[in-house]
Design a protein around this nucleic acid. Structure first.
Lengths: 279, 279
DNA sequence: TCCTCTTTGTACGATAACGCACAGACGGAC
DNA sequence: GTCCGTCTGTGCGTTATCGTACAAAGAGGA
């Protein structure tokens, strides 16, 4: 399910990777970061691998680096819908500190990529420190997560598949270090909780107007502005609120203050290629 | 907008009302409760009154007693959808401690009823106490709130208006001290984000099968079991998780351990009628 | 008692999405 | 180069919900 990189090389990679290639971790003061680094293990995830099952008791939390992880709800009849999509701006496993400790939904990797893994015990230790920096930041992230879920509620209610697909592609793109969304229509359909044919039809239209291009499991954004226009307001609402709550300016990308910036590009530029060897 | 009861009588009422008629407050250790009581002000809300606007900076939090408050999202085009429904099991204003401090959605009272109001400053003081009891409980509640929102995402995607109406009525009933949901089809429609006619049609069917009865702005549940069968799984999923996260056994209603129990009945029985005079 | 406003009932065409079925096209394995 | 499994394209009847319009039935005030 979840594959591990040999530990020795991992630790060297993590040290080199400072500042940490996860926005949440990168927000933290440097001394906190250096306290966290020994507790982080870099791992690679295959597309489709299950990070945790629904109802599972969580033993670890995960900070995506260049992978996208989806919180997926599976109904009794087997149909699915994505509750939240999480990339380098966040983490998997908020219930570790929210309480209950049991995930309500399945977490599944949508792309092959890397994450930082941290044990729930270490994480809780840090969360309960009297120095509230870590806690405060995690709570702000939780608020961003809530915002995303709330917006998904209304988006599911009121917006067309075409709008939702546009939104979803923009969100995916923001979390990837390159402009190649390696996903089939089928996969996206199961995330949005619609038929594959619905995605095919909408994607076709987005291609016709020149917003995207795609080709057998690969989707590229060719005109981001156009795609944002095809999308509903939901994309920008969530993005703006997340930027407001986590205004972290990473060392190598001062332009991240710009709220219209692409988080993905923050990663693809700069140190990334040097520090993290893809597994 | 929000009406106040004269302060002197309020404080006397609150003292008599211990244990506090809000599940969240009632979960707390007694010494914590007595520390909180001086900071609580009881207020009445009219149906339709706005507790806070979308985007507002929150100056207070609210713990519903016998009223239902809805977090409502209003889209740019004016259409609406409910993100979450909150009653005596919870509170309004989690963003006061989550961070950001700005509510993303409008909070609106769906019923005329009473709430405890507490200033955001006092609330944050308590939340940041080194003794983490208050904080832990609030985080567990936030997790329950997240669960509700996540379930609403999938419910909006996959379930019929009839199922959603059933779920919604059950949730409303759980939060009311009596079996009289004083709401028009129009109001419920704006919460579910559907047409009024859709609610009328579904309500008609629920009435025909004998699950509910209704009459010009009043809805009564006549066969709860039947209504649960007409509902989707979403109702019980959220209820079970909330019960798991907030397993608070109030003094006067030991039967609240039963997960199928009606939270509303916890309130209607016992001290309630004596302690709280409706305004 | 009557009047008026609110609430609910009903109808009907339009539309978006569904379920199903199958064809065509690509691309990696051999 | 060929084969085969995967992915995308497309058609078609069905269904749920929408938008709009208007009628009927309370409920409360004059």
């Amino acid at each position: 399910m979840v594959q591990k990189t040999p530990e020795r090389s991992v630790n060297r990679m993590i040290e080199q990777a400072t500042p940490l290639k996860n926005r949440l971790l990168n927000c933290m003061p440097l001394e906190l970061q250096s306290r966290l680094i020994p507790k982080l293990k870099m791992m690679s995830l295959e597309q489709g691998s299950v990070v945790h099952e629904a109802g599972a008791s969580l033993t670890h939390v995960y900070f995506p680096i260049d992978s996208i992880i989806s919180l997926l709800h599976v109904l009794e009849n087997g149909t699915t819908a994505e509750v939240s999509v999480i990339g380098n701006e966040g983490m998997i496993g908020v219930s570790v500190f929210m309480g209950g400790n049991n995930a309500q939904n399945q977490a599944i990797a949508l792309t092959t990529g890397t994450v930082f893994q941290m044990s729930a015990i270490h994480f809780r230790d840090e969360f309960n420190q009297p120095d509230a920096v870590f806690r405060m930041l995690l709570l702000r992230y939780s608020q961003a997560l809530i915002t995303q879920m709330a917006q998904t509620v209304v988006c599911n209610r009121h917006h067309s598949i075409e709008q939702q697909l546009s939104r979803w592609l923009l969100m995916a793109s923001d979390r990837l270090p390159h402009n190649d969304i390696i996903m089939t229509h089928e996969l996206i359909a199961s995330m949005l909780g619609v038929r594959r044919e619905g995605i095919t039809a909408s994607a076709h239209k987005l291609k016709e107007v020149g917003a995207i291009d795609y080709h057998r499991g690969h989707i590229m954004i060719v005109d981001r502005i156009k795609l944002e226009k095809m999308s509903c307001e939901c994309y920008l609402v969530v993005k703006r609120e997340t930027d407001r709550l986590l205004p972290c300016h990473s060392v190598e990308s001062p332009e991240s203050v710009d709220t219209t910036s692409n988080w993905g590009s923050m990663i693809s530029s700069g140190l990334h290629a040097k520090c993290i060897s893809r597994v």
